[in-house]
Design a protein around this nucleic acid. Structure first.
Lengths: 204, 204
DNA sequence: CTCCTAACCGAACGGTGTTAGGTTATCTAA
DNA sequence: TTAGATAACCTAACACCGTTCGGTTAGGAG
């Protein structure tokens, strides 16, 4: 073999994700990525076919961490809760890439595999196929909505900005310092209310 | 006054939204926008400070259509349901701009004004301020999640793609032809389950 | 020692958002 | 009627982007 490679698909993926986490999705450029790897931009294309493709690979890597094993016990409620929490945790670890992840989850192998498990678990739990599809979709709504429109990255650090303008919002709990906790609690509230509502529906 | 203007902020906004609806968010460039307005790209900057700013103006215009008057009757459940439906309808009318809309809704004047109303309506309905904040956040999760990770733009038209690969997903109801209806029904399911779950919580 | 070949580089193409400075057309004031 | 003011638009350019083509280089295989 000629020349030992200093690049690899895995190293590129790792560096790309690091840049995205640090500089945002728009902060990732092939030139910057190459530069941080000690290489010229053109060299990347020996390992990655396209920037879009690279992003999909990074996306798949993140989605691999979503755990749907909670459905194995046969309890669809526990399956739903644990899967949603795992999903959210995976997204919350890399919030900057969520907008990309949210675009067309149904085209992603890793996403479909998990969706299939969720769907199967729901049907096994007594839901119709159509209902299972809708519930799985709702789960994605919640998870992606929570990861995307989170408070953490939403409100200004300057509390006085909200004072007088929005009488109901001028509260300390909107400060970014507690926003992370609020995001978590809001997601838990939404998730539990959703599952509770589903359970109520199955009983009637 | 010199020379009658052929450009205006409003005309630019309208054309921009039209391009976004037709060609997607990435399909909007200042040069293309200018071209469709019969003008050179630089001319746009007399009416719009920045492309990002233009997008925010378009976003605000869309958010203005969200109706939160449902809270006026004093019934927080109805308020929540009607506001969520109105919100989703506004987003679903222009799905391509949703990824931009989802990014930092808390920085947008129009969004905050509505959030304030929702928050107030929930507090008036007996929820604590913190609970009201979390419920409002949950509502955004649902609405943006539904608008963003919708089935309509998710699954392949080619049904055979899913056959054998994902045994639980190989169903006719995943076809894009019915995906729009499925999206709507899934959102309704999620929304009603969520509100039902909240009502159950308030009763206990 | 030579050849082969994979890994990387330099330079370029067409595209992007944005800006500085110049032109043009119309309205106002003398 | 004409001169000036000025808003609206344009030309040209900058720095960046993703991507490609053709070349160079380093190291193992014969």
């Amino acid at each position: 073999m000629p020349r030992s490679p200093i690049l690899s698909a895995s190293r590129i993926r790792t560096a790309a994700l690091h840049i995205i986490d640090r500089d945002g999705l728009d902060g990732l450029s092939m030139r910057k990525l190459a530069s941080e790897l000690g290489v010229q931009a053109a060299s990347l294309y020996g390992h990655v076919s396209t920037k879009d493709d690279l992003l999909h690979e990074v996306a798949a890597q993140i989605l691999e961490q979503v755990d749907v094993s909670g459905f194995e016990g046969g309890d669809w409620r526990y399956g739903l809760l644990s899967c949603a929490r795992s999903y959210r945790a995976a997204l919350a670890a890399h919030p900057n890439i969520v907008p990309f992840l949210a675009y067309g989850p149904a085209h992603r192998e890793a996403s479909l595999r998990r969706l299939d498990v969720v769907h199967g678990g729901l049907v096994a739990g007594g839901w119709s196929r159509r209902e299972a599809t809708m519930i799985a979709a709702s789960l994605l709504y919640l998870v992606f909505g929570a990861a995307l429109s989170s408070f953490s990255s939403g409100f200004s650090e300057d509390q006085t900005f909200y004072r007088d303008r929005y009488p109901n919002l001028d509260k300390a709990h909107l400060l970014p310092s507690v926003a992370r906790e609020l995001d978590h609690d809001s997601f838990e509230l939404a998730l539990e209310a959703f599952v509770t509502g589903l359970a109520a529906r199955v009983r009637s």
